[in-house]
Amino acid sequence: MTDNRRFLLRRRPQGEPVAQDFELVTEPKPSIADGQFLIRNHYASLDPAMRGWMDDADSYMPPIPLGAPVRASTIGVVEESRAEGFVPGQWVMGLHAIEDYSVSAAGGFTQPIDPAIVPSVTNYLSLFGAVGMTAYFGLLEVCEPKAGETVLVSGAAGAVGSIVGQLAKIQGCRVVGIAGGAEKCARLVDRYGFDAAIDYRGKDEAALVAAIAKEAPNGVDVIFENVGGIVLDAGLMNLNMHARVGLCGLISEYNSPEPVGARNLWRLIVKRASIRGLLVADYVARFGEGAAKMGEWAAQGRIVVDEHIDDGIEHAFDAFMRLFSGTNQGKMILRIA
């Protein structure tokens, strides 16, 4: 290819993104300078966090500049290189963008990967990527589950939540998941081994509080939170003494014009519980450790991972919006090449 298709952010979304916020353009394939290498992107990871990067707001990463391609984790193949340690034909993973070609440099976040040691190279965007490592370090180090405890996972059918639930079972916990729809709830129990699943659809906060209490009659020791809003508020009403809440995401609030926030934080005082935000970037230096354990458990059949792959950069917007409509069945990935 001599062209570079790029999925650009043209304006800041106001609430839920619309197609007009983006533009697919075709530009010449970029050239590289000394110390750089050119990557032909094959797959891009689509994640809820990308919605926050589109806002002009203070965060753990700078906003995506208007007119720039949408930032995303990608895996691809080095096509040209003028950088030591990177050679043409080598597979790499890094934080790039939704585009055919990305320019990277030695010494950055981009790292070589070996597709021969995993069932599918896309596993580097799921089990062995930021998703799997978020679940591994977020649950085991931030939430510190103990055998016999009850773990509540919101957004449990999502890429991170489904792995969290399985890891909690490996730790000997009772696991209750919250998801949207009967099909996803059935998958939590039948495929991922959750002890119970709660369908949040059609339930107000009081109904969710009651549903959690029914499935966790002895209370909740750990909440792994991906949703926020009334889902988090309902979980807080079921806390045990000295419970731990790991705050991974707030997907129900990402498209809200005004912040929603949690109203039942007072329960942390009553139960002497703690809440802690978690970000996988804090554990990059230990990814090898986490990947080794995850690979071991996957080989034993104790962890299963589903991936939902949509084809074509021209479908980037529709694929991204699956994250908010809940129509994806597993880790959302876009096949670019």
Rank of each mutant, 00 (worst) to 15 (best):
L250S: 10
V176Q: 02
D195P: 02
M321I: 11
V18W: 09
E141I: 01
E149H: 07
P145W: 01
N328T: 12
L38W: 06
Y60W: 15
D55M: 13
S102C: 08
D311T: 13
V118Y: 04
A216S: 11
K214S: 10
W266A: 08
E141M: 03
V92P: 02
G229A: 13
A316F: 07
I230C: 00
L66V: 14
L38F: 11
L8A: 10
L265D: 02
D310F: 14
V164N: 05
G249T: 04
N255M: 14
D58K: 15
K214M: 07
E253G: 04
I223A: 04
V121P: 03
L247K: 06
L167P: 04
A19T: 11
A292E: 11
I275C: 09
Y60S: 14
A147H: 09
E258P: 06
S154G: 05
C185W: 04
V87N: 06
H96D: 13
A207V: 05
K271E: 09
R40W: 01
Q36E: 15
L279H: 13
G180D: 10
G67C: 05
V222R: 05
A159L: 04
V222M: 02
G129M: 06
A207T: 05
E215A: 12
E205S: 03
R263T: 09
G94T: 07
G85Y: 07
L24G: 07
V25E: 10
F320A: 12
P17D: 13
A337L: 02
M50T: 10
L323N: 14
P28M: 10
I178H: 00
A337G: 15
I275A: 14
E79R: 05
Y283L: 00
V284L: 13
E149P: 03
G132Q: 00
N218C: 08
